Amino acid sequence: MKVGMVAHHYPHPAHREEFISRVHRVGEVFRQTPGCLSAECWVSGDAVVSIVQWESEEASAASFAVVQATAELDLAYDDRESRPREIVRLTAA
């Protein structure tokens, strides 16, 4: 069953372009993993939105393991963001 994730990130204006680049780099790694159907970066107002879809929950878990193990990716939540990330996990109906 297809699963997805929508994550809203809120970088401070001074870090917005850097954050968009970070999301694009993470998306590139997600797209290279088996079972990842898409990984995109969008913007909406002050939010940078990442949207990812996988073939299954197992593919999602495997993709996250690869992304978290990729040393050159910057996944840290820190003071470059103005508020906590909002992450919604989805399951196809």
Rank of each mutant, 00 (worst) to 15 (best):
M1I: 07
K2L: 13
K2G: 11
G4M: 00
M5P: 04
M5D: 01
V6C: 10
H8V: 00
H9S: 01
Y10N: 03
P11R: 12
P11F: 12
H12V: 09
P13G: 14
H15Y: 10
R16A: 03
R16L: 10
E17R: 15
E18S: 12
F19H: 11
I20T: 00
I20K: 02
S21M: 07
S21W: 06
S21C: 13
R22F: 00
V23N: 03
H24T: 12
H24A: 14
H24M: 07
R25A: 13
R25F: 06
V26W: 06
V26Y: 06
V26N: 01
G27E: 03
E28G: 14
E28P: 13
V29W: 01
V29G: 00
F30I: 09
F30M: 10
R31I: 08
P34I: 01
G35M: 04
C36Y: 14
L37R: 08
S38Q: 09
S38T: 14
S38V: 11
A39N: 03
A39Y: 07
E40Q: 12
E40N: 09
C41L: 02
V43W: 03
V43M: 13
V43R: 14
S44C: 11
S44I: 05
S44N: 10
S44E: 04
S44P: 00
S44F: 02
A47K: 10
A47S: 12
V48D: 10
V49K: 01
S50H: 05
I51R: 13
I51V: 14
I51C: 14
V52P: 00
V52S: 01
Q53S: 07
Q53K: 08
Q53I: 05
W54R: 06
W54G: 11
W54V: 11
E55Q: 07
E57T: 08
E57G: 11
E58A: 15
A59R: 02
A61Y: 03
A61P: 02
A62K: 14
S63R: 12
F64P: 05
F64L: 13
A65H: 13
V66E: 10
V66S: 02
V67C: 10
A69Q: 06
A69L: 00
A69H: 04
T70M: 03
T70W: 00
T70F: 02
A71T: 12
A71Y: 05
E72G: 07
L73S: 08
L73M: 07
L73H: 14
D74H: 12
D74K: 15
D74I: 13
L75V: 01
L75D: 07
L75C: 08
A76G: 03
A76D: 11
A76P: 01
Y77A: 10
D78W: 15
D78Q: 09
R80S: 06
S82V: 13
S82R: 15
R83L: 09
R85F: 08
R85L: 01
E86Y: 05
V88E: 06
R89L: 14
A92N: 02
A92C: 04
A92Y: 04
